[in-house]
Design a protein around this nucleic acid. Structure first.
Lengths: 334, 334
DNA sequence: CTGTTAGCGCTTTCAG
DNA sequence: CTGAAAGCGCTAACAG
């Protein structure tokens, strides 16, 4: 074992070389499976390494090889079920390819999204960016300096992106409500400046244009339980027969709040969510929603990143269509 | 910009030195705030660095400094709300101290727990280990080679640990049920060999010994929704007036299943969970549970790790007491 | 106060 | 097929 000046003692490639009676380069070659080394010698080296419980320092390798075998994932909120699923799918897919994942939570802050993307990129081989708040022009600028980068639910420049088609999915939800006879609908809006909210508003605008008999009123809300619960009174006062929530969290908050006021779901009010988070099927009644394949989104994001890492051309943006999942929280209009 | 043989072009400390007309060491010193450098010179260096948009390579620094400014977190399942919260609390706490977090999901596998702990440790400065499945003797052995390491919900050797007192919390839950008049209770058990399940069984055994009038039957179950839902029939058939679920997921699955069978909660059956995951308060009726401060657990785990990193002595194991949170899913026995 | 030099631990030409 | 030597980008003695 090599003793170092700080007193620490660590097994290095030199120790293996000494024990096997070969040079450093031979150890390196043998351990990396380089076929130019004599099989018998290679065996001897591997034995020595095993005996010393040696593994090459990832940091030293990273420096010389120029790659860290690690990718960064920047998400807006680790507390949000959707990003948790994305992270989970991504993490498992990357692990299957022997890559590690550095996570960073930007705490819903635009500044953090920008800064973290840069700082995490420097210590990894690429960054998978989930930055819903960052203005488009900033994103465009940022992406250039970050390559390789994969975007989730956004597009910018040449960067590969994987996204869920929020707009089409929302249209499907609106059509479901319309078929059920709902003509007065309220939409509980998310963060005003977010891309996700814009997509939903676009779908609504289009739908209303095509269905003049239907009115969709917007209620400013938020993205979490509390926001949904707080909007309960406004929803009941609106006289609408159906409420379309920005996401499942909002829908569940609303569900909980209006039921406490004696409102029956779906008899008095239909509620529809978005995302199909794991809990959506366990509410009472179970929540109708659009199933965003978040884990799959994460896995696909990794697949894209791996392509980039292997030097492939950035593929076409991948779009997954959330699947309308009808459960008990929606029914015919009163 | 330094051109390298692979065609890449990257700004190095040499470029900054050249532009500022000083040596590499001066750049290093100036940029690291070393006070032995002339203020005017330091300014010049910083300007040069800014002009070139230079930041020192974290990998190179890691190699020479012997620290990566990164810690690893190994969790059994990124899909489990409790670990998600732990990760979130940890991630934010570490970020506040300018540390990065490498996550690894062991996919509930003992082998993975063991392997990941080692591989992630090598590329970080320490590991925070959440390994509920690993047998104690293996954990003891592992921890020695991993230092610095912080354990979550386990103890081993000298390693600092932060844990929730599952046992006391479960006792509190049992007492609540007893006060409500419940004498026939079923316990939906978690993974048989897990530490968490053992703690609950210990609390139950103790409680039963002290309350001979009360019977607590164990039903093998699991740790997720589906398990809880599947156990519904068995719970109803047991004739118990209250069900104690291994965790909130199980409780929610059960809640959902028995309600579909027409069972009224809490009139016909009281249900009590464990963890107080974010959704627990939004079920119908809201779930009585013990609030495990998971995010706080994560933050405290980081605090311990930071102490170790700063060379402090490992402190006493920290134990947080989950708080009994009474909501609508419990009521007087029928 | 600043520059020169020697590594951190490893991989990879380049010679033999 | 193997070894010596250079160097990844940076910091930290060690001299001046």
């Amino acid at each position: 074992m090599t003793r170092r000046n700080d007193g620490t003692t660590r097994v290095t490639i030199a120790d293996v070389a000494a024990r096997a009676g070969v040079s450093l380069s031979t150890v390196s070659r043998a351990l990396n499976g380089n076929p130019t080394v004599d099989p018998a010698l290679a065996e001897r080296v591997k034995d020595a390494a095993a005996a010393l419980d040696y593994t090459a320092s990832p940091v030293a390798r990273s420096l010389v090889l120029g790659r860290t075998q690690t990718v960064a994932v920047v998400v807006p909120d680790l507390g949000n079920p959707t990003f948790q699923e994305v992270l989970r799918g991504l993490s498992r897919a990357a692990a299957a390819d022997d890559y590690h994942v550095l996570v960073a939570d930007s705490a819903e802050s635009v500044d953090e999204e920008r800064v973290l993307a840069g700082t995490t990129r420097r210590r990894t081989d690429g960054v998978i960016l989930c930055a819903p708040r960052l203005p488009q022009d900033e994103l465009d600028r940022l992406v250039g300096g970050l390559r390789p980068v994969v975007l989730i639910n956004r597009t910018a420049g040449e960067a590969p992106s994987v996204r869920a088609d929020y707009r089409s999915a929302l249209t499907a939800e609106l059509e479901l409500l319309h078929e059920l006879g709902h003509r007065r609908i309220v939409y509980l809006a998310g963060a005003p400046r977010s891309v996700a909210n814009a997509a939903r508003l676009a779908a609504i605008a289009e739908f209303v244009a095509e269905h003049p008999d239907t009115e969709v009123a917007e209620i400013p809300c938020g993205v979490d339980f509390e926001s949904g619960a707080s909007a309960g009174a406004a929803v009941l006062a609106s006289g609408a027969t159906a409420a379309l929530a920005f996401n499942d969290l909002v829908a569940m908050g609303l569900l909980s709040a209006v039921q406490e006021s004696g409102c029956r779901i779906p008899a008095d009010l239909s509620i529809i969510g978005f995302d199909d988070i794991p809990f959506a099927r366990y509410t009472t009644p179970p929540l109708t929603t659009a199933a965003v394949p978040a884990a799959e989104l994460g896995a696909q994001a990794w697949a894209r990143m791996r392509e980039l890492l292997e030097g492939a051309e950035p593929g076409e943006p991948l779009t997954l269509l959330p699947e309308l999942t009808v459960r008990g929280s929606t029914g015919p209009a009163a």
